[in-house]
Design a binder for these strands. Structure first.
Lengths: 205, 205
DNA sequence: CATATTTTGTACCGTTTCGCATTAAATTCT
DNA sequence: AGAATTTAATGCGAAACGGTACAAAATATG
């Protein structure tokens, strides 16, 4: 299903790579401030090619968000390896997040969804939907791990897996915002550490 | 210092009210997608008047952010009334935040800073600076209350006021993002409640 | 009343925007 | 080889963009 030779002139570019380049433009500039010229230059595609492959600017943006979301879910699932302690899992999640968030050129880029999709969410219903679904899926994946932690005794029976998961996500949301606000890696790592401790229950002594 | 009669034609509008209207436009659309026509229509000012009173679009946006930041700090200070228990203080902070975040017309607007300034923060250094300062000031104000809680015995001596404050802020950042993502008031209130419990130390039993 | 000064309204300027129409190129199918 | 089909490249075009020039209006000063 990958080598079905279509008739007609074949593509001269890798759509996936182009989508990655476009995503980077959106990541730095946001959706509204990213022009088709910017996107065209970054992908080395002229506008009609972009248009033919992805549709208009909003469709391209939604594709980029969706790809980012899926990549994020994969990273999350890997970090939440249930053979490791919950504490390590959360630390790995935050470390993986920071590795992505701090990868900016001039200033740290933070999270594509939280950093750029939130701005469009009020007016663009479809962006809001992707954003909402992304956050929910993330919460859900962490919640599964929390349930496991309760079953295994890592967390007390009284713990609320859903809410703990949402609060674990909250720490990550804050890292995303703060990275883009220019906070240093040291500060962000300290917040991540404290978040792990608080959620795993040993910050109070 | 308010009735110094300037010579020349007097203003026919209230600059503060106009700034509020402009802020609302930015709040819904974000900085980049808000056009001068939008702003002009919302404020009932023609573009030259806008330009004369506030400068260019970025200056107007920065003014709106700064006013929002100051309003937020006032609301925060009021919510953190030290004669009330820490738990109540945090609950009041989150309730006040949600009252603002959920006030959208079509979809909830969330936080002006987190919802729109983050998008511009990478490319606009001055926006990033305002955002960073806002987050830090917020953390600092909560941290003061946390220190008080340690002194009064509300929190154990072993508690880390700075990190607890940052985590308390983190919950609010998450509420801001989630409001804009379309989460219901019920979900947001539940997260706020759980956040209070976690930070004040009784979610684990 | 005349002059200086500031604001207001209209209208405009050059640029950039997004999207597409059109034509040339490259491949498959018959 | 020729028809059919898909992509690539150039370039256009209408609209929207941010910002301002200019003249009329409204006030203070002399």
């Amino acid at each position: 299903m990958k080598d079905e030779k279509k008739r007609g002139r074949p593509r001269g570019f890798d759509a996936k790579a182009a989508l990655g380049k476009a995503r980077d433009v959106f990541w730095d500039r946001g959706f509204a401030a990213a022009s088709l010229d910017n996107l065209s230059a970054a992908t080395n595609l002229n506008r009609p090619s972009l248009y033919g492959a992805f549709g208009d600017k909003e469709a391209l943006y939604l594709d980029a968000l969706e790809a980012y979301r899926q990549d994020g879910m994969a990273v999350l699932a890997e970090a939440l390896d249930p053979s490791l302690p919950l504490r390590d899992n959360l630390a790995r999640v935050y470390a993986a997040a920071l590795a992505i968030y701090l990868h900016g050129e001039t200033a740290a880029r933070g999270c594509l969804l939280i950093g750029t999709a939130t701005a469009e969410a009020v007016e663009h219903e479809r962006v809001r939907a992707v954003l909402g679904r992304s956050l929910n899926d993330f919460d859900g994946e962490i919640e599964k791990r929390m349930r496991l932690a309760v079953e295994s005794g890592e967390l007390p029976e009284s713990a609320n897996p859903q809410m703990l998961a949402r609060l674990a996500s909250a720490v990550m949301h804050s890292l995303a915002v703060r990275a883009r606000a220019g906070d240093s890696r040291e500060v962000l790592e300290a917040i991540a550490r404290s978040g792990v401790e608080l959620i795993c229950g040993s910050l109070h002594g």
